[in-house]
């Protein structure tokens, strides 16, 4: 039997894949990047990942039992939220902050809206946004790779470029291979691009995600960065802008979340373009050096409108 999952607009036929299989598959595809993150930033990254996952699971089961619902932590959605949140945190974050972020992600961004399938915003990104606004100082302190146990703080490449400390990648003392393998400061799970791409290829191959959102997101951002990212028009360093932030993690693993992305392919492409555009705008003119998480959250809010706008023709209905 063909084991692949086809993505199409409802109504659906029954398939073998359940929510929990998809959630565990996505978690599995994310694992290598996390292991690379632990290798790059040391055991403290592991503690943050574990804290986020455990807090997410405890919060989920606690709130579900308060709501008198069946406790469905084995479906993996809470684990995935915790995992994704921890990938978006700097490795030097105090453990209790990771705990609060994970609690916020599950309790406010997911369960307060009605639980799995009803949340408007991506819970992991909402948790990150909460932490970023609540304790900005700790959320923008990153450490240099391979400096554990005594970590040396170091700004991310995007921050350094934004603050005008460097003009191009070579002035940062990096090369493209460093960016590709993850030898740079950044969030735990976003640095190792090569393993993230491997996970993404796995998900695309299993048809768990479709190409529409990642491709439109990344190509929009690449085009805009090439045109206006550099000192002169059409001189931008595209590879640097794609690999030095959270774009790969965001485009393949966060923006494609089933609950918070549009149903139709046309909607997904508009969604991706919007994410890319907003990311570029925030990076170029906004207060933050990186805008992937905020742009995805803003586009999450637009999803119901996109679904209405891109409604497929009803069978037998003539315009």
């Amino acid at each position: 039997m063909n084991n692949k999952l086809l993505l199409s607009v409802s109504p659906h036929m029954h398939k073998k894949e359940t929510v929990s299989i998809i959630m565990w598959m996505v978690s599995l595809s994310l694992l290598p990047s996390g292991i690379a993150g632990i290798f790059i930033f040391g055991p403290k990254a592991l503690w943050i990942i574990l804290t986020c996952i455990i807090t997410a699971v405890i919060t989920e089961s606690g709130i579900l039992s308060l709501r008198h619902k069946r406790i469905t932590i084995m479906d993996g959605s809470a684990v995935l939220t915790g995992l994704l949140l921890s990938y978006n945190l700097p490795p030097d974050l105090p453990i209790w902050m990771a705990c609060i972020g994970s609690f916020f992600a599950i309790a406010i961004a997911k369960q307060a809206f009605g639980g799995l399938g009803r949340n408007i915003f991506n819970p992991a990104l909402a948790g990150r946004a909460f932490l970023l606004i609540a304790w900005p100082k700790y959320m923008v302190t990153f450490s240099k790779p391979f400096t554990y146990p005594d970590s040396i703080t170091c700004a991310t490449p995007l921050t350094l470029i934004k603050e005008g400390n460097a003009d191009n990648i070579y002035q940062l003392g990096l090369n493209y291979l460093d960016l590709f393998l993850g030898n740079r400061s950044g969030c735990i799970g976003e640095v190792c691009i090569v393993l993230l791409l491997l996970g993404a290829i796995f998900l695309l191959w299993r048809r768990i995600i479709s190409w529409h959102i990642p491709l439109s997101f990344i190509s929009t951002l690449a085009l805009l960065s090439w045109l206006w990212g550099g000192s002169q028009i059409a001189q931008g360093d595209v590879l640097f802008f794609l690999f030095s932030g959270g774009v790969i993690l965001g485009a393949f693993f966060m923006a494609t979340d089933y609950v918070t992305s549009p149903l139709t392919e046309r909607g997904q492409i508009i969604f991706g373009i919007g994410c890319g555009l907003l990311t570029f705008v925030i990076r170029k003119w906004g207060g933050y050096p990186e805008g992937v998480s905020f742009s995805i959250l803003i586009m999450n809010a637009v999803v119901p409108l996109l679904d209405r706008f891109c409604r497929p023709r009803i069978y037998g209905y003539i315009k």
Binding site: I133, A134, W135, Y138
Partner: peptide, 21 residues
Amino acid sequence: LPATIMVLPPGALLTLGILIG
């Protein structure tokens, strides 16, 4: 360590929403 978000507009909406609930 004060959570800055609570004195900013999102904190007001969060607090009010939870209290209404």
